[in-house]
């Protein structure tokens, strides 16, 4: 069950080099959690992206009775309007996942730039970035997304931007903490003396040392992106209705739970498998990269973050040695 014990000294000094990415991933896949997480994620991705090619019916066509029980022809029965649940399930994932992935990239990129800049420059830039982070953190993520779509209405690009933006402050906090740690090291000081420009130090010296926290953040944020995107579709702020979408499907079909439970349960199960898979894999990466029990705290702290965690929490933050 437990991750293979890596050479002990690595725990306190996260010496992460470019090649470390490969090492961490390889070690992760060798752990039970890593392989289970990867397997679940892969399975759901396969269904979501392969599904549209093998769906037996048009997902928007009315082919059976509303909430018909599953049968040989309609494997998961009919939905609220008599469309084939199985076909809708096969076709209703990929857009959700693509949108969540883009939102994750936006959020992690923005957060990483802000966090690394704040952590490396300190002083005024740090204060400004961290104040902005405080302000954005005061909005629960789904509330922030709802606020942004409230006037314009749900548009694909706006949903993606809203979810991405809502990730940025938390990513910024985590990466700022890691950057503070890295930028104190001698090799950074040495390069500074040679007069290399700030952006080049940030990209060339600091970023390569943040590979592990970045990987963990990408995994976490992807999980949250899926949860929030599906949640937004669920409450009616996703893609417009005729298109199949796992989040929308749950909501459309939950009134028929007693008639054909699969219509609402199967998309919920797909979303659950995907988030469990992603989170399990991310957890395995964290365990491999940092040691075993301490990172559970780090992972937990990396979730909804406090404005200023007290020292003992900060010390367990991703990447920072205690």
């Amino acid at each position: 069950m437990t991750a293979p014990a890596k050479d002990a000294p690595e725990v306190d000094v996260p010496r992460v080099r470019r090649s470390e990415l490969g090492h961490v991933l390889r070690d992760t896949v060798r752990t039970t959690r890593g392989i289970v997480g990867l397997g679940l994620t892969g399975l759901v991705l396969l269904v979501a992206f392969g599904g549209p090619f093998v769906a037996p019916y048009d997902p928007e066509e009315y082919v059976t009775a509303p909430f018909a029980k599953p049968s040989a022809l309609y494997h998961l029965g009919g939905d609220n309007l008599g469309r084939d649940v199985f076909s809708r399930l096969l076709c209703g994932g990929w857009q959700l996942i693509v949108m969540a992935a883009i939102a994750t990239v936006i959020g992690v990129a923005l957060g990483a730039v802000a966090g690394i800049y704040a952590g490396y420059r300190r002083g005024l830039p740090d204060t400004v970035v961290m104040r902005a982070v405080d302000v954005l953190l005061a909005f629960p993520q789904i509330v922030f997304a709802l606020l942004l779509v409230s006037v314009v209405g749900p548009r694909d690009w706006l949903l993606v931007v809203a979810v991405g933006l809502s990730h940025a402050p938390q990513v910024a906090r985590v990466l700022r903490a890691s950057t503070l740690d890295v930028s104190e090291r001698d090799f950074v000081k040495a390069v500074e003396i040679t007069g290399v420009s700030t952006p080049r130090i940030m990209i060339g010296e600091i970023l390569p040392n943040l590979v592990t926290p970045l990987m963990v953040e990408i995994g976490l944020r992807m999980t949250y992106s899926i949860v929030i995107m599906a949640g937004l579709s669920f409450i009616g702020f996703g893609l417009p209705p005729p298109q199949p979408n796992w989040g929308t499907m749950i909501n459309e079909n939950r009134i028929g739970l007693t008639l054909n439970p699969w219509a609402a349960l199967s998309p919920a199960i797909m979303i659950a498998l995907l988030t469990i898979g992603l989170n399990t894999f991310t957890d395995a990466v964290t365990r491999v990269a940092l040691g075993v029990d301490r990172k559970e705290a780090a992972l937990a702290v990396a979730g909804p973050s406090l404005v200023a965690p007290p020292a003992h929490v900060a010390s367990t933050d991703t990447g920072a040695g205690s």
Binding site: M1, R33, T223, I226, V227, A230, G231, F234, G247, I250, R254, L257, T258, P261, A264, L265, A268, I269, I271, A272, T275, I276, L278, N279, T280, D283
Partner: peptide, 30 residues
Amino acid sequence: DHVLSVTSLAVTSLPEFAVAIGLVFVFATN
């Protein structure tokens, strides 16, 4: 410990609405 930890890892990543639908299925409708 293992059972609790693995369960918590799985449950912690579940969206609220998926949990809600599951609970409704079990305790309210089916």
